[in-house]
Design a protein around this nucleic acid. Structure first.
Lengths: 168, 168
DNA sequence: CTCAGATACTAGGGCGTGCAAGCAGGTGAG
DNA sequence: CTCACCTGCTTGCACGCCCTAGTATCTGAG
């Protein structure tokens, strides 16, 4: 970080000041919180992508591999994955398309419901996700750039937010 | 929220438990924090999109309109917007393409640098962003679904995270 | 003054997300 | 048993993000 950058004011603080100045005082804190959240998510996602890119994975595909790896038979119906990961069915389809092309996942017919498709993790998929987990733990999750106390605060607040949004 | 949903366990809590169970204890809290952040961002962005969709805006395009509206002459070079909003130059190009097609922004030549392009907000752009701000303040920012105290905690923690990432 | 290197923007493509529509397959009221 | 109605999945489209070139244009060392 340069001295110039250190002296720069926080853009989100600037926005907050403008909100108050325009009389939107009741909304200013919430606006700043949302904007911070969006920006923080970008920062962390970039760090994650840097770690996963050499492994030819994205966070979305990594999450699918971990979910399958943790499941009893290493296989789950597409719909079930979508609801567990809270993503749209079409996102599951496209992610599984790519994972299948990479050989990390295979599509299997559902034993009893011919509409359904099971995504099943392969051996290479297990191996790749294990490698990715080790790298993510060491390079991202073990040090987010905030104190342990702040990590706890963050988890607590976001848990409330998710709960109040009906997320679980 | 249904009773069934209320009794459901938090998927992120489940993931945290699995991380500890596999011996990745040092990374478990960070993993849970990051996953929570990603999910919270999705929830809030969905709420924002619902408000902005009837106005034919997205959050990215709304941010550009507000930035231009707040600037001295209602116009800024593309690069300047990219650095202020922390987005890639190509994202600015495509967002301005759409705003221009909608008539909310006009491209003007830079007075002294013929390489540069100024994006300039139009009257319809000002009007639309004002409408959007009123709606977002009332329907999202004034009530995020957490307490004022939690909003403050969130802002504080994320400000540290951004600062330590060299964001400002 | 010249020209190599920096800078501003755009084009094209990969990937993720969501909506709308369509198709095959299950299901229950009658 | 039949038929209208769900469900599970896929496809096509729009949009956002980023990356990698590529084209203009500017700038400064010599």
């Amino acid at each position: 970080m340069t001295i110039g950058k250190m002296l720069d004011t926080d853009p989100i603080g600037e926005a907050h000041r403008l909100w108050v100045k325009h009389g939107w005082t009741d909304a200013a804190d919430g606006m700043a919180a949302v904007t911070s959240l969006v920006r923080a998510q970008q920062i962390l996602m970039q760090r994650i992508d840097v770690v996963l890119r050499p492994l030819n994975l994205t966070f979305a595909r990594y999450e699918i591999l971990m979910l399958l790896g943790f499941s009893r038979n290493g296989a789950l119906p597409m719909t079930r994955m979508g609801s567990l990961l809270q993503v749209h069915p079409t996102s599951v389809t496209s992610a599984v398309d790519r994972l299948e092309a990479q050989g990390f996942v295979a599509r299997l017919p559902h034993p009893t419901d011919r509409r359904a498709v099971l995504a099943s993790i392969t051996e290479p998929g297990r191996s790749q996700s294990a490698t990715a987990t080790i790298a993510l733990n060491a390079q991202v999750f073990e040090n987010l750039g905030i104190t342990d106390n702040q990590v706890d605060q963050l988890r607590g607040v976001l848990r409330s937010l998710r709960a109040n949004a009906g997320d679980f």
